[in-house]
Design a protein around this nucleic acid. Structure first.
Lengths: 260, 260
DNA sequence: AAGTGGTCTAGACCACACG
DNA sequence: GTGTGGTCTAGACCACTTC
């Protein structure tokens, strides 16, 4: 079971460049090379054969080989350099995909009953009455929404949202009888960039009352700011009771999804 | 400033298929199509021209057009279907890249002084003395490590780690004078899949004492399990004081990074 | 100077899904 | 059937970087 096969590992033999015949050729090549790296035939810092060599070894065109290796480079498994060649990375990926879907889908996915309630809905002026969104000039018209999301009647998320009314005037007439503001915005307004922040906070009195947890209880906060072509669209703070919500993500190198 | 240009948006004219001449052709095509979608010339559910048509409109080869659209499909901006064609997605990406680098780099990046202390180091048997890792058979030999990470002498992370000794026997001799266990493992042992969980917890007495926070303080917990070719390597719980640590991530559609 | 990756084209065959 | 994307090849030119 020992993985410490590095000390005794062999350099890649011609057999290691064998393909398994499953699926597209470029994926087979991807798997073959990933496999050699994972099995220690290529170690961190080692140089892979050039594309021209791989073309011969795999019996594929250069385009196909290039597509495979480009994909490995995107996964940060290798680094590519002109003239110097392709080198196995010393360190693996440090950025991971985390799914942050609409809370309604998380709840429904679990088979629970989903419901939401609009607690507040106010037109506010940026910078006044304690509402400030620094990405937007003071004095701008904003819509403030407070929405409680419930799973089987238990609160799982308090959503506190500011919407830039100059960018999304139509939202003023929307009543949100059928969809949540989050889904409405996602469907109506495209975005070009998104910023996320994750942190933990203790519930204050107001939050504790709304979420039905003890004062001081740990909560997971996801804050999201959405922009469209440099125009701020919406900023939302999603606060979850720490004991009823977590984010879960599984990542596998492509071709090795079933290696668990 | 209003973005509600959808109601008045025009169907794409031939001018919209103009390229800006910057960088590789496939990126120009990518930007051109992304731009048409973001500006509302193509709305959710609309069908893009076929690859053959785009080949003509952009004056590029099919390979090049295909590469551009394949990239858009990976970003979930469009969905591709044989026979039915390429359709603009009704909903945008719901999975985001979050950076989770080694804590030492986060601290050093901020310009703070970084230090770590190994608080505990025990050989344990899985299932005994309160240590259980369900991915591994009971009775397996594990190494338990407790490491405190500090920024400017203030604790920012408590790391509690289990290592599968059968998979990583060499770690038994490692003293971690120079590197943290996390970095050591990353450098020595490759992984093929990783699972992450994020949640908030309240500090209990022990945790509060170690982190130097009040009992009950909110903490952000990142749990990571790493596997290599189906073999569990390590499981680590990284607990951060909620007020001294957060995860931050900015994502932009490629080609629109400067649109903020 | 020469090797390596970056990109592009023209042409081809195939698989799938819809009518 | 037939249109659409999925994939592949052979060949080419170029840019960058190291030798």
């Amino acid at each position: 079971m020992a993985l410490g096969s590095k000390e005794t590992s062999q350099p890649p033999s011609s057999d290691d460049f064998a393909l398994d015949g499953e699926g597209p050729l470029f994926r087979q090549i991807e798997r073959a090379i990933t496999g050699m790296i994972l099995r220690g035939h290529y170690k961190a810092g080692d140089r892979l054969p050039s594309e021209a060599d791989l073309t011969t070894k795999f019996g594929a065109s250069r385009q196909t080989v290039n597509k495979a290796i480009t994909e490995l480079a995107k996964q940060t498994l290798v680094a590519r350099n002109r003239r110097a060649g392709t080198v196995v990375s010393a360190r693996f990926q440090e950025t991971f995909q985390l799914p942050l879907p609409d809370i309604s889908e998380v709840v429904l996915e679990r088979g629970d009953l989903y419901e939401f309630r609009i607690l507040k809905r106010d037109r506010v002026v940026n910078g006044e009455s304690g509402m400030t969104w620094s990405a937007i000039p003071k004095g701008s018209a904003l819509l403030y929404l407070e929405v409680l999301h419930l799973a089987n009647d238990a609160p799982v998320q308090l959503e506190r949202r500011l919407v830039n009314l100059a960018a999304v005037p139509r939202i003023a007439k929307e009543t949100f009888n059928d969809t949540t503001p989050g889904k409405w915005l996602l469907a109506k307004i495209p975005w070009s960039s998104v910023r996320h922040q994750l942190r933990a906070t203790a519930a204050d009195n107001a939050l504790a009352g709304i979420l039905g947890v003890a004062v001081g209880a740990a909560c997971l906060v996801v804050e999201r700011q959405t922009f469209h072509l440099a125009v701020p669209i919406t900023r939302v703070q999603m606060t979850h009771p720490g004991d009823r919500f977590q984010i879960d993500s599984l990542f596998a190198l492509s071709g090795f999804e079933n290696a668990d």
